[in-house]
């Protein structure tokens, strides 16, 4: 059970879109402080649009964002990995240093304190040994960690992640999620994450907002991640089960689809029981 926390910010009756297309239609959502809030939905469902409104990249057509502390919190942002620019001949350290740019004076050089912050952020995401490597020569996972270090170096109160594990293999994604989770707990940051990955949501999020056709259904993770809500949201049987202490979201049988019971049984058996 997640303790009740006061919201860091609240979207109140927010509508937004592009051109004539309305993507978000009068949605309201609270983001509790010092928690992980996940925005889950299919492509085009509006989760990235909500983030873009929050980041000031597009203006809402109606509604507003209320900040509990009265002013916008310091934000760290990690965009989708495939949106990163790889033509620039910058190395990993130069990318991380960019995170300090808004807080630096126009003509001020990087101070020793700034350098220590950069080193620390790179160390946390284990990219300190890649500091001089060209950004364009890095793998997707390495780039994502460099972007996270850049977000962290600005000492954010709110960390916004857009599809942080998209395109990553299972191992890289698991390690990255664990790192973000521990960071949130250590530093007491509020994390807002947009994702397709229900498994990521199931095990890390305190609050979940399901996006569908411009509307949302939001609440504590234990409420949203139930068979009933998941089945209603997906329009097909979906089960939430616990395996070795981890929640997994499993699709049920779809009418008309062939059963692969023999394959499922083979996979479910422990490895030592399987024939070589």
């Amino acid at each position: 059970m997640v303790e009740e926390r006061r919201p860091l910010l609240r979207f109140d009756g927010l509508s937004a879109g592009y051109g004539r297309r309305l993507v978000l239609n009068r949605i309201s959502l609270s983001v509790p402080e010092r928690s992980v809030t996940a925005l889950v939905g299919a492509n085009g469902s509006g989760k990235t649009t909500l983030l873009r409104v929050l980041l000031g990249l597009i203006k809402p057509r109606a509604g507003r964002i209320e900040y509990t502390l009265g002013e916008r919190p310091r934000i760290g942002y990690v965009p989708q990995i495939d949106s990163s620019e790889v033509r620039f001949p910058v190395n990993a350290r130069e990318v991380v240093i960019m995170g300090l740019t808004p807080s630096r004076g126009l003509l001020r050089r990087i101070s020793p304190v700034d350098r220590r912050s950069v080193d620390e952020a790179m160390h946390i995401f284990r990219v300190d040994d890649l500091a001089d490597r060209p950004f364009r020569a890095m793998s997707g996972g390495q780039r994502q960690r460099v972007m996270l270090a850049r977000a962290l170096v600005s000492r954010p109160e709110l960390l916004v992640l857009d599809e942080p594990v998209r395109g990553l293999d299972l191992a890289s994604a698991s390690r990255l999620v664990a790192r973000i989770d521990s960071l949130a707990q250590e530093r007491g940051m509020t994390i807002l994450v947009a994702t397709h990955s229900l498994d990521l949501v199931a095990n890390q999020a305190d609050h979940v907002a399901l996006f569908s056709e411009g509307r949302i259904e939001a609440g504590p993770a234990e409420h949203i991640l139930s068979d009933e809500v998941m089945t209603r949201y997906h329009g097909m049987p979906v089960y939430v089960r616990e395996v070795e202490g981890q929640l997994v979201v499993v699709p049920g049988h779809v009418d008309g689809a062939p059963r692969h019971a023999h394959r499922a049984r083979r996979i479910a058996r422990p490895a030592e029981e399987r024939a070589p």
Binding site: R52, I75, G76, V90
Partner: peptide
């Protein structure tokens, strides 16, 4: 040159630069 870090950030990743207050 005087605005090099800002121009670099805004050309490299304008969305993040805006999100961080530039």
């Amino acid at each position: 040159l005087a605005t090099f870090p800002r121009i670099l950030f805004c050309t490299f990743d304008p969305d993040t630069a805006t999100a961080l207050g530039l």
